[in-house]
Every structure is written in structure tokens, then in C-alpha cells.
Amino acid sequence: MSRLSVRKTYKLYIGGAFPRSESGRSYPVTSAKGDFLANASRASRKDARDAVVAARKAFPGWSGATPYNRGQILYRVAEMLEGRRGQFAEELGGGKRAAAERVDATVDRLVWYAGWSDKIAAVHGAANPVAGPYFNLSSPEPTGVVAVVAPADPLLGLVSVVAPVIVTGNTCVVVASEPSPLAAITLAEVLATSDLPGGVVNILTGSQAELAPWLAGHMDVNGLDLTGVDDADLALRCEQAAAENLKRVLRPAPQDWTADPGTGRMTRFLETKTVWHPIGI
């Protein structure tokens, strides 16, 4: 008698747990050739709301952790991802060799951002000379909860937008790519097993046109990364909603994910705090 294989149910990743969508909906995910792969959860606005609550709850702990510690945890994520190379390459599909290269590039990207955790403050902070008896220091601080609409590139693109947001101490709610969300949920399994506190990254699968406006209008979200939005009209509506509470917005722009990313994605979601310390009294 042959064994029945155990198939994975693709769920959401909210607050360190894997719940089904509150709405109970799902949608079929197909491969590039049109073959049925799996049913993924189709998140509703209430799942987005819960994810923001989880991200807000995780923010004090994550932003308060030392940058060194955050870097170590991101490096650990890279380690875990490396251990699942085969699984990710299979999920990406396409040519075996090309898929393996994408996974390797993803691991390298994580390690690259992990290295920035304790250096970004040295590069973007400053000790300012002022005309008075003060030490004047500028230091970059995380902005808070960032909503991320992930690009279509299912793994490298996803990691390239999530890593820069969390490495500086933000927490995030990610809307995974609608046509290819499976790698995002497998990445969530990696995150859940790699010391990343629950709620730092929350992953929703489903319609970006349905979820993005709710996140853009949410008054408890501090930043919005629209990288994955292809529809110009949707991007505009999201930017307008984001203006309501002056969210930091990263506008959609075509990206080559294999190129050197630079620090722009990190600094976009940092706020500079300047403090004056009196001296000589």
C-alpha cells in the first residue's frame, strides 16, 4: 500500500502564528504554465487589521533590541533559508540552475542587510558641531509599523523589500505577490523558526487591490512601501490615503533585484532624532 502524502495548507503568518484567513476564503495558485499548485488564503481587511495590531505589539521589543542582536537574527534567517535551498528552488520552478541561483542570491541579500544593522547608525547618524556648550547628536530611529506590498519576484524580490525594513528595527505587514504567494509562506516558516520575534514580520496572501488601500489608510501604520503595486491608479489612491497621517511612502519603481540595492530602502523608513546634551554643567 502506498503512503498518502501530507500536503501543506498555505495559511497566513500573523503575530508568529499561522492562522487561516478570518474570512475563510482562499484562491487557487497556478504555476507559470497554468497548472494548479495549491490553494492560498485570501486575506481580508480584518486580517490586515489583526496583522497591524501584531506588528504594533512587536515594535517596542524589536526596535529596542540592540542593532547587533537584530543583525544576528537576520543572519540566522539566512542560515535557515540556506538549509531549505532545495525546497525553495522547487517552489520557484523554472530551470533548476536558475532557481538555485535565485535562492543563493536571496541568502546573500539577507546576509548583506544583516551586516548593515549596526552600521547604518554610524553612516546616517552624526555628531553635529553646534555653537553652544552641547553635544548635538543625530541618530536614525525606526519609524514604526511599515506596510509592504511585495513585488512579483516571489523570493528575491520579497526578501529585498522585507529585510531593509526590519533590519533597522521597524516591524512590517507584507502583502505577498498575488500570483506567486507560496514562497512567501514558506519564507514565513523560515522566519518562525529563526529567533525572529512573532509579529515583526506578518505575511498576508491575497488580493493587493483589496488589502493595500486598507493598510494605506490605517492610522496606526507609519510607513508604506508600494514597490509591488503595478496598477498606477491603485498606487495613487494608496499614496493619497497614506497622506492622511503622513506615512513615509516608497513609490513603485521598476527594480532589478540582482543589482546592488544601496541603502535607500533602509533610510526611507528611518527618522532622524536629534538630541542636545548640555556639557560643562
Partner: peptide
């Protein structure tokens, strides 16, 4: 307002 509110306000 139709938007989720945040405690900052």
C-alpha cells in the same frame, strides 16, 4: 471615517 484608527491620535 472608514479608516482604521490608531492610538497615536
Amino acid at each position: 471615517t472608514g479608516r482604521y484608527a490608531g492610538p497615536d491620535y
